[in-house]
């Protein structure tokens, strides 16, 4: 029983990691209809910048909370300006181009970012100092660490914050307008360029937070970490219905749970016929089944269609 609970906790935490990244994908898609494949790489840059700041400040005698705060602020601002620049340089000139062009550009941007990071931070794995509290707690026989609790909370706060922003503020109203019909939004006096730029900056800022949390959880940072994470998070976003905030969150959690329970029980349930290497097969099987019956994902629909 405690094994099952432990697997559910594992899956929930892993799912929250996916959800944090998936929110960034889904927000940009929801407003622009663009799949920003570079998002995983922005998470990586956020982690790298945070690591550099932590390394710089850790021996300065500042309390760890303050070091954490500084690294968070700096990595969020670096990622926001990075997000803005990417949108300005790579995507805005292509806004009226066929859909395939920005998609390929996004892949190009992600390769560029990955290689830039390799040049700046090197190809070594880097150790992320244990700056977040990481004590274990027993919980009905299962073990959960403080970083894991924090990841779940941060993911929830991120989603709640975004939902509030999109549905309760003037900026959110403008975002929904742009999502629904960019031309009409311009006619109504919405500054579309500004709204889209802000969307990218917000998404990138969230990516930085996700990057910091993920590095703190696994303790290692590498220039390649963004690509596989991005792929999984993208899958989660599609599973939940890309473009939809609640969908990204639920898709992430669901993917995490499927992976964890799949890897944990598939071997025993099939009598050793299938092993834990089928966990991805299992996850993608669920994705395909969902898409067959609900082509727009579990929660369906972009921000605009639901507004």
């Amino acid at each position: 029983m405690d094994t099952l609970l432990q697997q559910i906790i594992n899956g929930y935490v892993q799912g929250s990691v996916y959800a944090m990244v998936a929110l960034g994908y889904t927000m940009v898609y929801g407003i622009l209809g663009l799949i920003n494949f570079a998002h995983g790489e922005i998470v990586m840059v956020g982690a790298m910048v945070a690591l550099s700041v932590v390394q710089l400040l850790i021996n300065s005698g500042l309390p760890p909370q303050l070091v954490l705060l500084f690294s968070l602020i700096i990595s969020v601002s670096v990622c926001m300006s990075l997000g803005y620049s990417i949108e300005r340089i790579a995507y805005r000139p292509l806004r009226k181009a066929p859909r395939l062009a920005p998609l390929i550009t996004a892949i190009g941007v992600s390769i560029v970012l990955q290689n830039l990071a390799m040049i700046i931070w090197g190809r070594e794995y880097l150790a992320f100092p244990p700056i977040l509290p990481n004590n274990s707690h027993r919980f009905f026989g299962a073990i959960i660490t403080e970083v894991q609790i924090l990841i779940v909370l941060v993911a929830l706060i991120m989603m709640g914050g975004l939902l509030l922003l999109v549905h309760q503020t003037r900026l959110g109203c403008a975002m929904r307008a742009v999502a629904e019909n960019p031309t009409a939004a311009i006619l109504m006096g919405v500054n579309t360029n500004k709204v889209i730029a802000i969307t990218f900056m917000l998404g990138s800022g969230l990516a930085a937070v996700a990057g910091l949390m993920i590095s703190a959880r696994y303790g290692i940072v590498h220039y390649y970490m963004g690509s596989i994470l991005g792929l999984k998070a993208f899958t989660a976003a599609v599973l939940g219905g890309i473009g939809n905030m609640r969908g990204a969150m639920m898709g992430g959690l669901l993917l995490g749970l499927i992976e964890s329970l799949g890897a944990g029980y598939i071997g025993d349930l099939s009598g050793g016929f299938l092993g834990s290497h089928y966990q991805d097969v299992f996850a993608f099987f669920v994705l395909i089944s969902v898409l067959i019956f609900r082509p727009s994902g579990l929660f369906g629909g972009r921000i605009a269609e639901r507004a």
Partner: peptide
């Protein structure tokens, strides 16, 4: 007592380790 699998890009092994722990 157990034979589990992962891949050469994974970073999270809590699921297989929990299963092994049991």
């Amino acid at each position: 007592v157990a034979r589990e699998y992962t891949n050469d890009k994974a970073v999270d092994f809590t699921a297989v380790l929990t299963s092994i722990k049991s």
